[in-house]
Design a protein around this nucleic acid. Sequence first.
DNA 1: GCGACAG
DNA 2: ATCTTGTCGC
Length: 296
Amino acid sequence: MARAVPAAAGSEMRPARPDLAPRPGLSRDEMESLQRRVAEAAVFEDDLPFDPTRVSLDTPETGNQTLTGAVAPGGDTDTDGDADTDTNSPPLVAGIDQSFLDDRALSAVVVLRGGEVVERVHAVSDLDLPYIPGLLSFREGGPILDALAELDCDPDLLVFDGSGRIHFRQAGLATHLGVVCDAPSIGVAKSLLCGTPDEDVDGRPEGWRTPIRADDSVDPVGGHPDGPETTIGYAFQSRQYDSRPIVNPLYVSPGHRLSAATAVDLVSRLSGSYKLPEPTRLADAYADEAKAQYED
DNA sequence: GCGACAG
DNA sequence: ATCTTGTCGC
């Protein structure tokens, strides 16, 4: 049965695979086996509901970028009950990041359509686990799902702050939540968790990229055309300033429903004047901004 | 035992 | 992630 009510907040982005959700309270072994199941269910090939080349930060309309936030101007512009099967308008891209308050996490989501912010939501949730390398999705996954549940729109792409396939069991935060939501997702990390870069990553020019290949620390996943040489992501130099502080590259990896090559291409298209892609940068700023309202 | 590790 | 002053440069 369809909803009787218009479209209440939280009606979109509901988990498609709640059975694979990062439940807390599992033993370490149970968390790792769940990650193996997530990796099996993950798709590291392009299966996108939009054309990647349509993703950009440009705003067709007035050529004017409105990054100040706030919701849609004149209220409901469209009936928006489902995906946009309509126009050539850019896909909806959601940037997700968190800030912390004691034992609580503030998860922020900023959704962009081209260079415009169309929605911003956040949620404050209790944290159940400490940070453990390799098990990040079990600490931050639940809180992030809480925030995504507040969304009125249905993003075409989710951009996470952390790794996707660049993970010991090929199931990092971006992969885990991408699979649970069954949505295309990308992981953008500021440092490398595992895997080996093809080339030295130091002091590279903007736009430069090199494959990150699976090594001994990356477990093979049945069901995927894997091999010890499999490209699980890319080191990507998004920015490089004309002066000293050599900027480190970003480590981009596919979360779900896209290839490593498409993931970097999209991050490149979403890069503005800063190191982090715009959706992530805005979510990061919003997470800090909203945090102030909860500090004791 | 040693090394190594997203946020 | 978070704790934090000043400092260099467009």
